[in-house]
Design a protein around this nucleic acid. Structure first.
Lengths: 136, 136
DNA sequence: CTAGTTGCAAAGAGTTTGCATGGCG
DNA sequence: CGCCATGCAAACTCTTTGCAACTAG
């Protein structure tokens, strides 16, 4: 094994994610969320470790410079396609059936094997759609 | 109007894209492709201008640091969802019918309005799937 | 005690910007 | 000729890394 250590920083990070696993956070937000319990570099290092373990997913929002990370360690998230709201950043899971049918349809029509762990659907969630109301 | 100028750099850039509109390029690749015909900053500036005009789309590949740009100015690309191969970077259009059904299904099941211009499906294209053959 | 981890600060990579010069119309 | 775009280099932002000190097991 590689990581046999349970450091305070790592615990803090995992707890942070576990309590909010339906949302993606920037490193800056994580730093604030941990309130000094871990340094930026420790966060980055743990983040990439968790990413390799498959517990955290890294995404990028079009138009933003920084990366966003979200917890996908729970069974609940396993293999699901995620949708991220370009307005509020909320990330939700796509219904399993719908996801499966998408994979099948795309594969059939284009011979393209979607990687559900890498793919993120961008759009506007119901709440932000309301808020917008034609604005922008 | 804003951009009334047809500079050599801009022309070179547009030609570069037009001759290869089914592929996404990093700025580095574009620089090389233009062979000194434009400076890095001119490329970036034109790129973001083209992006605002809706002729070029910026995407990010999971695991890569740089942004990729591709031409979507042709009617052919209008409103289509794009699929990018995480192995070779090839970008192709999703069949219109399939795309429409995805939009409808997702909207129906999750009240989420996908933005087709922001969304990129990541996966492995047929060719790379063959090449892999269990490798990696 | 030993090896993995942390924190800090410096280094990197990619992208953006200020400013004087040059080119388009 | 006037204004916009270019080039260059410096500035920036986000992320990674080197290294000594620290801590979990």
């Amino acid at each position: 094994m590689k990581s046999a250590y349970h450091t305070q920083q790592r615990k803090a990070l995992e707890e942070f994610f576990e309590s909010r696993h339906d949302h993606a956070f920037s490193v800056e937000e994580i730093v604030k969320g941990l309130g000094g319990k871990a340094s930026v570099s420790a966060i980055y290092r743990n983040l990439s470790a968790l990413e390799k373990e498959g517990k955290v997913r890294k995404t990028t929002v079009p138009g933003e410079r920084e990366a966003y990370f979200q917890y996908v360690g729970c069974v609940h998230c396993h293999g699901h396609i995620h949708m991220t709201c370009v307005d509020c950043g909320a990330t939700t899971h796509l219904d399993e059936e719908v996801a499966a049918s998408i994979l099948k349809n795309v594969s059939a029509s284009s011979s393209f094997a979607i990687d559900p762990t890498a793919t993120v659907l961008y759009g506007v969630c119901q709440e932000c759609a309301k808020k917008r109301g034609g604005v922008k």
